[in-house]
Design a protein around this nucleic acid. Structure first.
Lengths: 145, 145
DNA sequence: CCCCTTTCAATCGTGTGCGATTGATTAATA
DNA sequence: TATTAATCAATCGCACACGATTGAAAGGGG
C-alpha cells in the first residue's frame, strides 16, 4: 500500500529529525558541563540508583558494552564516576558516582529546566506525544518471527 | 518545574528509542540492498527529483557536507549514483542516479511495504504521531535568541 | 582588472550506535 | 573434579552526525 509506506517514511523521517533536534537542544544545554546526551542518560540512571553494573545500565538504556565501555571510560576520565571490578564477580564492572557526579545533579537539572521553559510545549502535548511514541515503540519492538 | 523536566526527559528518551528502533527496522529491510537508512533518504530525495546538488540534498535532509560527502562517495562506489562537477559552477557537486539507482526503486519500495505491513499501526496512529512530531519539531526548531 | 566577500565541497576530530568477535571469569553438569 | 556452557566487559570495524576549519571557485565593487 503506497499510503502506508508513505506515512511510515514520513513518520520515520520526522522521528529522525525530532531526535536530532532534541539532541541539539541537550548538547546546547549540557555543553557547559562537558556532557553529551548519552552521558546525561547514564547520569540520570545513576542518580536514580547508584552502583549499577554496565550490564544493568545497558538494560535501562538499551545499550551494550560496545557503546557503553568507551562512553563510561570518557565519563570516568571527566570525573563523573568510577568503574570497579567487584570481588564477588570479577567479570562485572560496577559503576558508582563520584562526589562531583552527585553534586552536579541539581545544577544540571536547573540548567535543563531553564532551557526547556523556552520551548512552549504544554503538559498535554508532552503526554500525548509520549503516549503515541509508546505505541510506536511497542509496535516496533514486537518480535518479528 | 520538576514535572516539565521529567516529561521532556521522558519524551526525548522515547524519541531517541523510537528512532533507534525505526533505524533497526530499516536496516533489516535495506540490508539486502546494501543500503543504510541515510542512504535510503538520499535515494528517496533523488527519486523525487534527480540531479540535485549536494547543497540541495542537504537542505532537504538537513545535513551538510561533513556528513554527505563521505555518504555520497560510498553510494557512488556502490553504484547508486554519480557525482559530477558542473562546468557552469565548478564549486558545486551535482548528483544523478545511475540506471541501477533508478531501477531499484520499485523492488526497494516493495521490500519496505512487505516489512511495514508486519507492524500493525493504523493510518490514524501514523497521522496523529506525525502531527504531534511536527509540533515538537516546530517547537525545537524555533530560533532561540 | 584586482581585491574582497560569498559560496561551495572537502576534511578533521569526536562521540555515539551497533553487529560481530574475543577473552576472561563463573556456573553447571557429567 | 574436569569439561563444557553461559555470562560478562572489552575490542574491532563501519557508518553516521556535527562543530569547526580549509581551500577552491565564483561574484561584486571600486
Amino acid at each position: 500500500m503506497t499510503l502506508e509506506i508513505d506515512l511510515a517514511n514520513q513518520l520515520c523521517f520526522s522521528i529522525y529529525n525530532a531526535n536530532r533536534l532534541f539532541n541539539k537542544f541537550y548538547v546546547e544545554t549540557l555543553t557547559p558541563f562537558k556532557l553529551t546526551y548519552a552521558q546525561y542518560l547514564v547520569l540520570m540512571a545513576l542518580w536514580e540508583r547508584d552502583d549499577q553494573s554496565l550490564h544493568e545500565l545497558g538494560q535501562v538504556l538499551r545499550l551494550s558494552s560496545n557503546t557503553l565501555t568507551p562512553l563510561l571510560r570518557r565519563m570516568e576520565d571527566a570525573g563523573w564516576l568510577q568503574r570497579e571490578r567487584p570481588a564477588t564477580d570479577r567479570r562485572q564492572l560496577v559503576i558508582h558516582l563520584t562526589t562531583q557526579g552527585k553534586q552536579q545533579q541539581a545544577p544540571i537539572e536547573a540548567a535543563i529546566a531553564t532551557c526547556i521553559s523556552r520551548y512552549h510545549l504544554t503538559i498535554d502535548e508532552y503526554q500525548q506525544a509520549l503516549a503515541l511514541n509508546q505505541k510506536i515503540i511497542t509496535a516496533l519492538s514486537q518480535d518479528l518471527a
